[in-house]
Design a protein around this nucleic acid. Structure first.
Lengths: 214, 214
DNA sequence: AGATGTGAATGAGTTCACAGCT
DNA sequence: AGCTGTGAACTCATTCACATCT
């Protein structure tokens, strides 16, 4: 089904909130209680959930545990997902370590870099291989998500290699818009853009900004 | 002036594209040429720029160098901005190193952590201080942007301390929605959400998705 | 002629408000 | 009675198309 990234991102948030409620022993929750608790919109929660079917019980609300399970399935988070990180500079290795530290469905299955000093080292539990190994290692370990953490100039070339090796989703930290063939999904994360956004609100003669969501 | 984050983020992108054009020796560019070159929308470029005044020359286009300068000023990137990073785990230190490596208006002026093993070490050129030093160090070094890279459970508490110390913009890596007083801007960057988004498109019986922007 | 700047039209996303179920 | 699910209303953002200027 065709769902907007915005809705999907909210589902991820709901998932976390539900885990927290479960941790507190809450079994049922109405959209209003849920919204109040986590400063969200009740109408939006209902609409988001209704996109995927009828999860709630009218007159009662939603049952925490079943809802949690259904969203988890829906997002595909009940399966393990192998990641390949390309570029083991500060950002790439931090990402690998970060995922390594976190329990969840994501596993860093491969790491690549062209720097001979980095190849052969282990970062976040993963052996760093040369970039030329992408073509063989990615299909071998059934990796379908690639993390691009190389300099801007190299990003497109790396992306092409990843896609050629079977990658279908790319999380891109490089400050360029990647061109991909149909069917390949990319998500850009550009830290400098976020900083620059914040600066504008800092320097511009401000009036009344409430805190805003990502 | 009141400008949406979407517009601001695009301005950041235009800035990079303009730098690239300048590097190639291009002096003038029409919105159409610009859009074709970087796969953007010509109408949107014109509208975005027109938000802030008349930058172009009718019948000709935009002059690269002056436009570059004006956007830089507009976003406040002609001034130095001091950052304080809280949480020197994998993400926080990577961020500090990443900014340290990058030339630009951002400088990591302070780093904080509560782990005694980390306090006293230097990461990305910055001495790590205990969290209790926020109240004195942040105003002392005139820091107005804070980076929250601590675990979710500690994020709100850290954010409050930063705001109390004078921080007015927060880049938050913790997977929680921070509550802030009026006038404080927050921007959430949640890597797991992006991964989860990508997974949905991977597992769901897809049809026709073009590559999409962040 | 040729490109900008901009109101008007379209599209996307959110909120409202209520019918309908438990 | 109370809460979900949802069409309708509304707000925000993008695209179109053209009057305006060089």
């Amino acid at each position: 089904m065709d769902v907007s990234p915005l809705t999907l991102n909210r589902l991820s948030i709901y998932l976390r909130c539900l885990r927290r409620l479960r941790g507190e022993g809450v079994c049922q929750v109405s959209s209003q209680q849920f919204a109040d608790r986590f400063r969200l919109s009740a109408a939006q929660i209902r609409k988001d959930l209704a996109t995927f079917g009828e999860f709630g019980i009218r007159g009662v609300g939603y049952e925490v545990e079943p809802l949690l399970r259904r969203i988890t399935e829906l997002l595909g988070l009940d399966q393990r997902h192998a990641l390949a990180v390309v570029g083991m500079g500060s950002l790439g290795s931090a990402f690998a370590r970060h995922i390594g530290e976190t329990r969840g469905p994501f596993v860093v299955a491969a790491g690549f870099d062209n720097d001979p000093d980095k190849v052969g080292r282990t970062v976040g539990g993963v052996l760093v291989e040369p970039v030329s190994a992408i073509a063989s290692t990615v299909p071998e370990r059934d990796v379908r998500i690639g993390i691009v953490a190389v300099p801007a100039a190299a990003a497109q070339e790396i992306c092409d290699q990843l896609v050629a090796a079977g990658i279908r989703s790319v999380l891109n930290f490089a400050p360029v818009r990647l061109a991909t063939s149909e069917g390949v999904r990319t998500r850009n994360v550009d830290l400098r853009i976020y900083l620059e956004e914040l600066v504008y609100y800092l320097v511009s003669p401000s009036r009344s900004w409430a805190s805003e969501e990502a």
